[in-house]
Nucleic acid binder design. Structure first.
Lengths: 350, 350
DNA sequence: CCGTTTTAGTAAAACGGTTTAGTAGACCGC
DNA sequence: GCGGTCTACTAAACCGTTTTACTAAAACGG
């Protein structure tokens, strides 16, 4: 542990205050059954010795740790950090420490991190990076471990607590927006296929296109893996198609990829929005910058994290996990800025 | 803890395999002194029972936890997350779990979080959000707790391990760049004054101005608290000065504030870079976007985090903390983009 | 074949707390 | 003056591991 100077324990206090360790524990936990006299004496000794309890030992004895596990995709990803920020607020306010684990959207790594956090004795899990195939989450849920999934869902796990975006509707809105602006050839850069967001954001757009009889062309659908670099390359390929097949608009399943599309477009000598309309997804902070002004979808990531954390704490405290699971679907909102050439509507103050 | 199903312990294994708990522990930790026969039997029973060790109990017994505390300013802040990301890489590779704590640049909160993490039994601290007045850090260092400060320094703590940016030089380069472009009236939006980065980035710029006999005007120096909103307001105030006093260039002590300056400039009807040159600090990911193209300073945040974490692990493992402390100063680099109207030099590939 | 070392194994203490099950004495009603 | 309830306090068990100290038997050397 992090304490080179010999750590003062409850026994030291007991010895000096001439009482039993039990009594000291009683006092330190504000329980009754100790006289005023002794109580003060113990408190005084404790403060003189600068006693701080060993939370690890306490956790072992009490069988709960006041630590939660927070899994994210990666710390560098703005969306997940926005969520984590909201969650951290709530956890801090309620005295929880946060154990952070990155999964990098790798199912095996997710399983591993989940197991490790559990062995560490965390009280519950807030999972923002859930995979579609997720044995680790299945096991936790089966064992009744307090768990809330934020942003994503795990298909098939009907009793999962989650707070997520409406990916499908978001995707639908995005594509519909482009269609209404008159675009017939719409390219789509997809996210990772092993996540509900990756799937939903894509399928929603396809649905909008089908509903409006806009052709869905395989050549205009590219994998982007939620990564800017991949989106850049995918876009370059699309833009090198023959004139007639080239897209006049592109929908990227997240903002990072939209930036990749943006770059590729410019590098090809085209302008946004004049030659190419562009829609992203997430409303990442930087997209609201006046010079970027990316049309996008707001899913209230910060608020989602917060709600998820509050709920998790709730479940841990009252163990009312046996009542029906909470399943909130946040309303996605299209934020229209400049990247599509549409009129600028309500730009929220930053 | 997170285990509603009765947890299988080392004693269960011992009972079923008909050996003592000691022997089981020996086997599970790959220590010698156990026959092949029994070793296999124990291993088989353990795997049949799906045994996973209780890491909390192990930590208590072994007096170390394989957990490190990582303090950040706030999860929402791109710079700190960039650092955290690098650190997480190294920690993961070495089997450490991360306990994350946000300080919000509040000294009291920092003290509290540090104490809490310590009570939790973390093996060491990676601190990215160090305050200038930092009793909590002083105490840790005095007690010989493994600790590395990244990005910032704690003045007065000469034996502190740190990996930081050269804030002063960075600020100097930023201001010098503006001066070379011919600017005489340079505004500065400062960061928080209780951090070494906030101080250094400012003082470096002032030094450059003095060295070049450019007037340092109090009216053109505004507090920004490292926050975009504050920078926005501060800039508005500057831009409403009489024509002769108004700045022709502004240096913001981080990129977020630069964005605030950007907005305020545009909202005042001025253009960047034609009417206003702008320099930021951090090389945040979004600043490299073609449409933002903000001239800034790169401090290799990701790499700093990584180095800091590696060093921390090193110290924990070999306890060679008594040798001279590691004190690395990363070379800051000016990344010239478009926001100052200077020629575009080496734009690194994203 | 005897003393010494090695091997395989164990019982008990430790880590630093909490919790359970008491005990001894004061107080109370009747 | 006797049973019953409170109050103040404690000894011992417990949480799930690791570690120390020890033993019995086997192997070894000469």
């Amino acid at each position: 542990m992090a304490n080179t100077p010999k750590k003062v324990t409850i026994k030291d206090i007991a010895r000096i205050a001439e009482v039993s360790p039990t009594t000291v524990s009683l006092v330190l936990n504000n329980k009754k059954g100790v006289g005023k006299e002794t109580r003060y004496r113990i408190l005084r000794v404790a403060s003189e010795l600068k006693y701080t309890p060993n939370l690890m030992a306490r956790s072992l004895a009490k069988s709960h740790s006041d630590i939660i596990a927070l899994t994210i995709l990666q710390a560098r990803n703005a969306l997940f950090m926005e969520i984590a920020d909201g969650a951290a607020e709530a956890f801090n306010e309620n005295g929880y420490s946060i154990m952070m684990a990155s999964t990098y959207d790798d199912p095996d790594l997710e399983t591993k991190e989940l197991a490790s956090a559990r062995a560490r004795g965390v009280d519950g899990f807030l999972i923002t990076s859930a995979q579609v195939e997720s044995p680790g989450i299945w096991e936790l849920v089966e064992d009744g471990v307090p768990l809330v999934s934020v942003l994503r869902r795990v298909p098939g796990l009907s009793n999962l607590n989650y707070i997520m975006e409406d990916s499908f509707k978001g995707g639908y809105l995005a594509a519909e927006h482009l269609i209404k602006l008159g675009h017939k050839r719409i390219g789509i850069v997809k996210g990772t296929p092993n996540t509900t967001t990756g799937i939903g954001r894509f399928e929603g757009a396809v649905a909008a296109m089908k509903d409006n009889r806009v052709p869905v062309d395989d050549k205009l659908i590219a994998p982007g893996e939620f990564a800017r670099g991949a989106a850049y390359l995918a876009t370059l390929a699309m833009l090198h198609l023959p004139d007639k097949e080239r897209p006049t608009a592109i929908y990227a399943c997240n903002d990072d990829m939209a930036m990749g599309v943006y770059e590729a477009t410019l590098d090809t000598g085209l302008r946004v929005p004049e030659d190419m309309a562009l829609v992203g997804f997430n409303n990442a902070p930087y997209t609201s910058l006046p010079t970027v002004a990316l049309t996008t979808i707001d899913v209230q990531a910060h608020e989602m994290g917060r709600l998820g954390a509050e709920r998790l704490i709730d479940i841990i405290n009252k163990k009312r996990g046996h009542t029906k699971p909470l399943q909130v679907i946040m309303e996605p909102k299209l934020i229209v800025r400049n990247s599509c050439g549409a009129r600028k509507e309500d730009e929220p103050a930053s």
